[in-house]
Design a protein around this nucleic acid. Structure first.
Lengths: 199, 199, 199, 199
DNA sequence: TTCTAAACGAGACGGTACGTCCTGTCTTACC
DNA sequence: GGTAAGACAGGACGTACCGTCTCGTTTAGAA
């Protein structure tokens, strides 16, 4: 569901909303975050600026919603991580994929744009946690919980902390460009994490 | 030494340089990153805009230099971490202090401003690593190396990785506001890290 | 009668029409011509914008009708100028009153607003002549004709021209603020006109 | 030499000023008053909007200056009316020309635009009187004074009033389109005026 | 000490984008 | 079907800054 959608006011033009979100996504991909302006979005979407200001409180929330719309189309409830029984192998698969994604220039620009907004806007960050991060984190934690039951992970491990130890180094490397995001690096993080949280 | 200082052009006004860096720091502290503009800096510093454009390539580099100037005054070469022989205690002391610093609203605004620039400007990020992060990291690694020699840490541990596992979760929590930065959390990170990298 | 009134469509809401005209008058009096917008009129009248656009072709015609409504209430057919037999005295009385009216700030704003519209909209100007100016001019010409019969005015005088010589200087002074609109000035105009058109 | 040479001198770009005034004139002639916007003027002149806002307080004053610039080029001090000794003939010549000018559609649009601004802006009206109207009026009054000395006009006639009686009816007819501006009409006005003010 | 060229403060310039206001049209829901 | 409400595309408003570009005025090093 969209940030500003309101069931009691169905007067909103779905056509315009989609055009705005699509234009935002296109502009970020093409020109990068710096060149995304409300005017450019409105022009690209064939929409009056007021229609954007009417429904979104800030440029950041438009950008956020343009991501949200993407993930919604793929119905976030059904996310699931591989569970072959081999935790190490499963995690390495997933973390290598994440590293590859961050390293892909096509993915980089939009994600960097999104993170820029999250850093400055606590409200947006909260929405991010609720609507985008949580479903994914829940899926990851489900896999970890399964590993706990299989005795591969300490039963009392704080799963949020596990995820932080697993992902935060990767995220920081990417954000500040402090090192390469290789498959080996992903593997190292999995190894370290499993050692830290083994029973 | 400043980013753009040039020994061959001693004509540069040190007075103006200091006024610009001071004005930048003040503006960030008072109004937050969003309201810091070149025009505002110039006006506050009582300086022509051209004097800023002449010596700095971007707003980000002015902001960066305004931080650099601060840390220079305290001559960064002499940084040293406590070494009581008790690695766990020493690390917890340091990490608790870091967590407290990030949680302090007065520190938060400038650091967040700096990070915003680093995310978007790879050149700046490189300078950050070289001039601000490296001295601190070197001090931290010196302490870790001492721990390795004392057999408290695996001899083959990648110290950069150790620092990432130790600090990245804290950094991520702060940046995305995904959780509280308490002393307990700092302690947990130390515990986890020591478990992961013990001999 | 209203510009757009239509006897064959009794569906029109008289309530809305009156509210619109009243709101228009109020807005002109309060804020002056520049701040009168269709949106402001609709909001003040508690009326949808479409109701205005449905029944009036332009903002000017709403303004015009808001004047027309005023003069209608006082049934324009019965206008008559004083006729004491002394043309000079009668004209001076009338012209002094006109000068005082123009000089009154409360009258000034609305009349200036109306004239602005008339200048730019020939259709409106025609309506003005037919519905507002003619009845008054006819009354004035009746008085002049009476004076012709009494031998106080040249029998072949073009009465439209007499009115122009009498009133246009006053109107121009007011519109362009080229001089004060005093009783003496009004008297001068009467004197000049009588001298020009005496038998 | 003096340390403060021309401190107050505004560093205004004459190039931009001329471009703005020319663009304004062109836009009024082409599209009429309604379509003249600051943005259009700036775009046509190849100038930033701020450059207009920096030097002119209102759209009206830009329009006014665009007229002023025209009349200045022809050095207003040298205006002189024909003086053949025959006042009636001279005035008819002049008034016929004025009537023709007002009737010419090419002249009409700009003059109407200017008058719209004058009606609403007392400051502008004052400038108009001082800078545009006065020189012309002085020339007209010079001719009338010459007629007074020749005994063709009452020695005590108020020349400002003479001009009003002569021109205001014409101006009013044109502004409100209350009648045709023919040569005959111009002649009538001269006849009436001479009769009113003869010795 | 004088000269000269740079750096300087000031701020105008052509522009881009902002966020607001209004236009005239269109849509929805009520009456 | 007229109405109140108000969303819509569009466009102008007046403001804030951008980065560049003159202006005179310091000012520091070379002559």
């Amino acid at each position: 569901m969209s940030t500003a959608q309101n069931r009691e006011r169905p007067r909103r033009s779905e056509r315009s909303r989609q055009a705005i979100l699509a234009a935002t996504r296109e502009l970020i991909s093409e020109s990068g975050y710096a060149k995304v302006s409300i005017e450019a979005i409105a022009a690209r979407a064939g929409v009056g600026k007021q229609t954007i200001y009417r429904w979104w409180p800030s440029k950041g929330s438009v950008i956020f919603d343009s991501f949200l719309a993407l993930s919604e189309s793929g119905d976030g409830t059904g996310i699931e991580l591989p569970d072959t029984g081999d935790l190490e192998a499963d995690l390495k698969l997933v973390l290598r994929a994440t590293a590859a994604e961050f390293a892909d220039p096509d993915f980089e620009r939009p994600i960097r744009a999104l993170n820029t907004e999250l850093i400055h806007d606590p409200d947006l960050a909260e929405q991010y946690r609720d609507k985008l991060a949580r479903p994914v984190d829940d899926a990851k934690k489900a896999r970890l919980r399964s590993a706990q039951q299989a005795g591969q992970l300490a039963a009392d491990a704080d799963l949020d902390l596990v995820l932080e130890v697993l992902y935060a180094p990767l995220f920081q490397r990417w954000l500040l460009r402090t090192g390469p995001l290789t498959a080996e690096y992903a593997d190292s993080l999995v190894d370290i994490t499993l050692r830290a949280f083994r029973p």
